[in-house]
Amino acid sequence: MYHFIDAAPGVRLWAEERGSATAPPLLLVMGAQTSGLGWPDELVDALAEHHRVIRYDHRDTGRSTWAFDQQPYAVTDLAEDAITVLDGLGVDRAHVVGMSLGGMLTQLLVADHPDRLLSATLIGTSALSTTPYVRPDGTHVPPEELPGIAPHVLEIWARPAEERGPEGELDARVAHWRALAGDQLPFDAEGARALERKIIEHTGHHASSTAHGRADTSGMLRTEELAKTEVPTLVISAPAEPVFPPPHPQHLAQVIRGARTVEIPGMGHALPREVLAPLTAAILDHTSVLDAPQDDDAVRGRR
């Protein structure tokens, strides 16, 4: 079941629900420039066996409104869009899973809207905090000195946007996913191409947006709020991650009060089939413990 939800004058967000309407809600928040369909159906369906799963298209992706040049916004506005989706679907509180930029948006939700979250799961992201990382030997590392984005990924991101035609655009997207996937698992080029073809069909055109890269990034630090939060938080550690490699996950677990890490073997900055089962298990292990003692309308969401 899908919906369109008004986020601002002239801006609508596409959202989809799967699973029982009475199950605990779980909101999936994708990364920059990526449609909600970037969450593989296999993962969504596995989570939907236990949750009312909601995924949505950010502004300037998928079927949501593309209007950044006419109505520019900040990254913090994208976090507020996630709350708008919950409001539009009548959900009081939800488990939230965020990947990449979506992990940063989820941190903003943890800090600014803790009353709306049952839990948070962060994948492939970095801490919105100025707190140093403390190595096992006790030395302190400022966040800006943690490992940066791999050069081969930066090179792809630095290329100017251009019209390539549908098949050329698919080639570029597959090459991008190959770079993001890391080097510990075999890369399924045909699977990546099929997913991107589906996203293009869903969107209705093959253009790629640069809006999220141009959005205002000011006002995103939440050092104090993350340090004192009571939102149960799981951090996924991906050993082949080329964007926010270890120890970024360990740093996140240090700056977010009570957070813990789970490593997914072979995982990079992507969601290939090989990581879906262990990732699903980690997320459900996190959410099921929190849902077990609760069985009221506030947890399930209101219709």
Rank of each mutant, 00 (worst) to 15 (best):
L118E: 07
L118T: 15
D137K: 10
L109D: 13
T223G: 11
R178G: 06
A181S: 15
E169Q: 09
S100I: 07
G165V: 00
V91I: 15
G213F: 11
S119R: 03
D171E: 03
T130H: 13
V96F: 10
P186C: 05
F187A: 06
A175M: 09
E167M: 05
R214A: 14
D216V: 12
R164P: 01
G103Y: 06
I200H: 11
V91A: 08
P151Q: 04
S129C: 08
E196Y: 10
T210F: 07
G165N: 01
L101N: 00
P166V: 04
Q107A: 07
D188A: 04
G124R: 01
W177F: 11
L154H: 02
D137N: 13
L105I: 06
S129R: 07
V91R: 11
V174D: 07
V97A: 06
R173Q: 10
E163W: 07
V141G: 05
L154E: 01
P132G: 06
G102W: 00
G102T: 05
I199P: 04
S126I: 08
P136H: 05
S129V: 02
P151V: 09
Q184P: 08
S100K: 08
H95Y: 05
R222K: 15
T210R: 13
A189E: 15
G138E: 13
A211V: 00
S126F: 13
D216C: 13
S209K: 03
D92M: 14
A161K: 07
P166A: 05
A211I: 04
R173P: 02
M220Q: 08
L109P: 12
T130Q: 14
E224P: 03
V97G: 11
E169S: 08
G204A: 13
A120V: 00
E144N: 12
L195T: 06
A127C: 09
K198Y: 06
S209E: 00
E145G: 04
S100N: 10
D188G: 10
V153E: 02
E144V: 11
T106M: 04
H205E: 00
D171S: 03
R173E: 05
G165C: 01
T125M: 12
L101A: 00
G138S: 13
V96T: 12
D92G: 15
L170V: 04
D183L: 02
L118S: 02
L101F: 00
L109K: 13
A179M: 11
V97H: 10
R178Y: 12
D137Q: 10
V174Y: 04
G138A: 12
L128G: 02
P166M: 06
H140Y: 09
P132I: 02
P132W: 07
E201Q: 09
H202Y: 12
L154V: 03
A94F: 10
H113C: 14
V153S: 08
I156N: 00
H206K: 06
A179T: 11
E201W: 03
V97L: 03
P147E: 01
G182K: 02
W157T: 07
E169M: 14
A120L: 02
G168V: 05
